[in-house]
Nucleic acid binder design. Sequence first.
DNA 1: TCCAATTGTGCAAACGATTGCATTTATTTA
DNA 2: TAAATAAATGCAATCGTTTGCACAATTGGA
Lengths: 335, 335
Amino acid sequence: MKDIARELGVSVATVSRALSDSPSISRERREAIQRYAREHNYFPNVIAEQLRHSRRNSSRAIGVIVPELVHYYFSSILDGIESEATARGYHLIVAKSNESYEREVKICDSMLKNKVCGIIVSQAKDTERYEHFLNLEAAGVPLVFYDRICPALNASRVVVDDYMGTMNAVSYLIETGCRRIAFYGAPMSMVIAKNRYNGYRDALYKHGLTMDERLVRICDNRADAERITPAMMRLEDRPDAFFAVNDETAIGILSVVKRLGYNVPDEVSICGFTNGFRATVCDPMLTTVEQRGSQVGKEAADILIGLVEGTLPADHAEKRIVKTRLVIRGTTRSL
Amino acid sequence: MKDIARELGVSVATVSRALSDSPSISRERREAIQRYAREHNYFPNVIAEQLRHSRRNSSRAIGVIVPELVHYYFSSILDGIESEATARGYHLIVAKSNESYEREVKICDSMLKNKVCGIIVSQAKDTERYEHFLNLEAAGVPLVFYDRICPALNASRVVVDDYMGTMNAVSYLIETGCRRIAFYGAPMSMVIAKNRYNGYRDALYKHGLTMDERLVRICDNRADAERITPAMMRLEDRPDAFFAVNDETAIGILSVVKRLGYNVPDEVSICGFTNGFRATVCDPMLTTVEQRGSQVGKEAADILIGLVEGTLPADHAEKRIVKTRLVIRGTTRSL
DNA sequence: TCCAATTGTGCAAACGATTGCATTTATTTA
DNA sequence: TAAATAAATGCAATCGTTTGCACAATTGGA
């Protein structure tokens, strides 16, 4: 800008105003300055701009905290956030917490220092203190939670409709003739785990089935599924269907059940939750509840940007629920 | 800082020096200032710091451009970059190009404006002009390519050992008794495609087998694999093994071959390339070349940070090759 | 012809840090 | 005791922008 000012014999202030299309600069000057700037491909220094505006405006950087990166659901969410943010002129600072509370705190500090305009976060599994989030709110940095929300904070959030997703899926299993449906869930300390369990319970109830506690287990990964499933299949009245909290677990069940010589889906039905890469790779392909991570990401970004730009009141906690969809494939019988 | 200075009755300059442990400030003052700062949890404004240092220092933000986010290999690489960057005090600005040249150019502009200290990038498929990269270099922003490198630019890069990876895998197929090995590759315009093809060709040659052009096809996704494989299996001398350029394609082959009633691996062996989620989900599990995305990411970040910090000479193009590893599972016979 | 209104510019102070140089004060040396 | 040296601090410019206010030049009206 200094150079332009010197070359064109005007002041820096004039250049600044001309470049921002201020009406107080005469048309000829304005155009001359803009042309010169363009020809010498001048572009403003964002750092300086930000410094100048630090009181009023926020940056256009959105902080995103994910527990893991190599993970279908989180990738999808990140993808959704990226799309929405880019479309609306924001960019992303991404960090992974590795499911560690300490890392999470450090990341929050770092993002605060780096002046993000807001943060989209899914808590680490071992996070049980929330000062770092409160600090951010106190510093005026809006927060939006996804997937694993912070129960102690009345913050904005977007979650998937775990309850209805599970309810519908289990209902479908029942409608296709299954009567003894096992449930493999995540630890009940997680809100999503509880919601899915409730969906399972209520689906049974709605169809007049009674719940057998022996068929309900805490199990949310493949290794555990492969460990506990053989015993379950040895029960005198073995399950004729499994609902698993995620696709990975469902795949574990599938591999055991097939190995034991049962036909899927004729003798045993299996339903997962996620609809990630895995679902179309196994044989038969997996019936599963689609979690629409990308949509979750988009909604989260939409809320955050609303908060930043003032479309949404800053003190308001916007809560959105993304609908799931049952994707029927080969591991369940047809109606 | 102003507040601290006022409260302690010193100048802002003194505060600045005290906080940066300058020896020219008396111990008592220094400690008093540091204590006061800590107690009132002061932390420096990075924006201002950057503005001040804009000539000398660069920011600590690394720009990362990925073609897609929901993709095992790219996720792994991003994960590797994140780990290395975080460990060394940098953070990531992530953007996806969606395989679009225009988006790639926009992202480069945006990252330049946002003063990243360097960029790690895999080109979009349809990128054939390189001014945007040259601009960055001209602006002094170091560039490191991964996976899909820019052939026209002598830039730093880290790639996987496609040639040896394929060579070893195909050799293994031969050693386990396969003689008619089909090759499904990516378009030869991509360097990695060519390298893998060469590995295939040379493995055959080394073992005294002649190449049958009918067994070599351009096919790098599941849909195409499912379309062209049936015809290939109908050949009078059908292949007894397939090498696919990625796991996804291999899965497509597997599903067709199984459907046609062949036993895998006894009648037909299949080998993929990636070792992503899919490889352990299909039945039988996939033998595949492990691509070590996370390691690729780490090396890329290491190079970039070296370039930024001057450990590596700025004009030098560092080229690293990450070794692959053959992961033997159920889709190939044993030795 | 003079004053008011309008229009176009420039000055200079911010934004929050850093740093070369000058200045003050204390200490040592001759 | 005066001069030289060392130690601690402050002044002020700087990084690249923006913007309130003052000022000059032009125009219009009475």
